[in-house]
Write a protein that binds this DNA or RNA. Structure first.
Length: 113
DNA sequence: GCGCTTCAACGTCATGTTGG
DNA sequence: CCAACATGACGTTGAAGCGC
């Protein structure tokens, strides 16, 4: 099953100049709770041990990716909220400018005599 | 109460990006 | 170059709302 190639736009900030904070990479050091480091590869021999090691690695990868996905969604929600509040501010600003323009038009328009 | 639709949150996979 | 990370895509699941 092939997936379509994703287009990488990178234009997230083009329109607004906002920082796409949800894309910022957080420094990660600590392992999630309950994660035990695997034995060093040098100490593995039997196919059984190799299989167990592969399983551990896979579970560790899945666990890390699960956490990464949660964090990614959290940042994205925050980013969308931020954009929405900016939209609200700009709409108010736009409305005020339109009103001001109408007022100025009234003042400047030639009066019929 | 029941089947349905919708929505949000989630887990996983595939793949792009980046630092060492 | 590669391991680790970030994120888009997709399927699943449970809760909430709605008409019957």
């Amino acid at each position: 099953m092939q997936k379509p190639i994703m287009a990488v736009t990178g234009d997230e900030t083009a329109a607004t100049g906002d920082m796409p904070t949800y894309q910022i990479r957080a420094p990660t050091t600590a392992l999630p709770q309950g994660v035990v480091m695997a034995a060093s590869p040098g100490s593995l021999h039997s196919p059984q041990q190799l299989a167990e090691e592969a399983t551990r690695k896979r579970e560790l990868r899945l666990m890390k990716n699960r956490e990464a996905a949660k964090e990614c969604r959290r940042r994205k929600k925050e980013y969308v909220k931020c954009l929405e509040s900016r939209v609200a501010v700009l709409e108010v600003q736009n409305k005020k400018l339109i009103e001001e323009l109408e007022t100025l038009k009234d003042i400047c328009s030639p009066k019929p005599d």
